[in-house]
């Protein structure tokens, strides 16, 4: 497996390539500062354009709750024979401390206007990322090639 990275326009792009089979998995890191000044619709448009290019977005922080709903809505509007949708997951290291999802949701609501730089948001194209599983100690991205999960 080959891993390469370069810096492009503030965001970091990591490419993971299997030597055999030639499948390419690209992870693009987006610092929160890169979306901070954007409107909600611009943020969603930016993130979806990256995902639609078959890249996995690793966003610093999280979207506001209404932006998450808008992201799902926009995704649905853009689904076609090539683009099947997204896999979405938010990881917050603070979650372990506060334990309950309700508190996480409440924390999200408090950040409704301010935005939130804590944690990470992973958004992957559904044709590449089949499932994102959150375990207390790890995050698993299941991708699929040749009908097999890995």
């Amino acid at each position: 497996m080959m891993v390469s990275s370069n810096l492009s326009n503030k965001s970091m792009v990591k490419k993971v390539q299997k030597k055999k089979g030639g499948s390419l998995l690209t992870l693009q890191f987006i610092p929160y500062a890169e979306i901070e000044s954007l409107s909600s619709s611009e943020r969603i448009e930016k993130l979806l354009s990256i995902v639609k290019a078959d890249k996995i977005v690793l966003l610093e922080g999280r979207l506001r709750s209404h932006e998450e709903a808008e992201l799902i809505r926009s995704t649905m509007e853009q689904i076609d024979q090539k683009f099947k949708g997204i896999e979405l997951s938010v990881i917050d290291p603070e979650e372990k401390k506060i334990k309950s999802i309700t508190k996480i949701i409440r924390s999200s609501v408090l950040n409704l206007l301010l935005g939130n730089r804590k944690g990470f948001t992973i958004i992957g194209p559904a044709n590449v990322v089949k499932e994102i599983k959150q375990d207390p100690d790890k995050i698993q991205l299941f991708t699929e090639t040749g009908g097999k999960k890995r």
């Binding site: 998450e68 709903a69 799902i72 938010v90 999802i101 999200s108 409704l112």
Partner: peptide, 13 residues
């Protein structure tokens, strides 16, 4: 699941 969290988060908001 993130869908569940998003739904409930939006209702709470």
């Amino acid at each position: 699941s993130q869908v569940n969290i998003t739904i409930i988060g939006n209702l709470q908001a």
